[in-house]
Design a protein around this nucleic acid. Structure first.
Length: 158
DNA sequence: GCCAACGTTGGC
DNA sequence: GCCAACGTTGGC
């Protein structure tokens, strides 16, 4: 399959790209997703090695701060079984897990953040899913040209 | 903190 | 299956 690209949102107060870069293996299960569309993309469409734009949400300013990649096959999100977790789901079971995730690995941090504001001003990104009004999905597909435009704006790969 | 947009729940 | 009520997201 051709290489694919994604945007994944994370609140930096909860889990930032710096947190990812400081993990011992620079990799982390992308847990806590409790939206079926986002789950389905991790479960059904993501492939090992897919490139990910790491987006900081619910902060000031929001925007894309770096690059990660898909680092595992899909598997059940362990937090859904943990009664002490905020992400515990009493309707899920080991037999029939409801929530599926992939691991994400650190690739690099941009020289400079590409803010949401800037993204809205880039003509190459006018059709980008995450910029459409009312979009709240935490995982969205990104085209290769969109990915490249953002990476370049972030000073990546020079 | 506000609130628009959207997803989920549950009564019927 | 409809839809009102409610909860969450996330920019501002």
């Amino acid at each position: 399959m051709a290489e694919q690209f994604w945007l994944m949102k994370s609140e930096p107060d909860v889990f930032s790209i710096k947190d990812l870069s400081e993990r011992p293996k620079q990799r982390e299960p992308w847990d806590g997703v409790r939206n079926y569309q986002a789950r389905n993309m991790m479960r059904d469409t993501m492939q090992l090695g897919d490139q990910v734009l790491f987006y900081h949400s619910n902060c000031n300013p929001p925007g894309i701060v770096g690059i990660a990649q898909v680092a595992s096959q899909p598997y059940p999100d362990p937090t859904q079984f943990d009664e002490n977790s905020n992400y515990f789901d009493p309707k899920s079971s080991q037999d029939k897990p409801r929530w599926i995730l992939v691991d994400v690995a650190y690739v690099g941090t941009f020289e400079r953040m590409v803010s949401l504001q800037e993204m809205k001003e880039m003509p190459e990104l006018k059709d980008m899913r995450v910029l459409q009004k009312g979009n709240r999905l935490s995982i969205t597909p990104v085209s290769k040209s969109e990915f490249q435009a953002i990476a370049q704006a972030g000073g990546w790969g020079k």
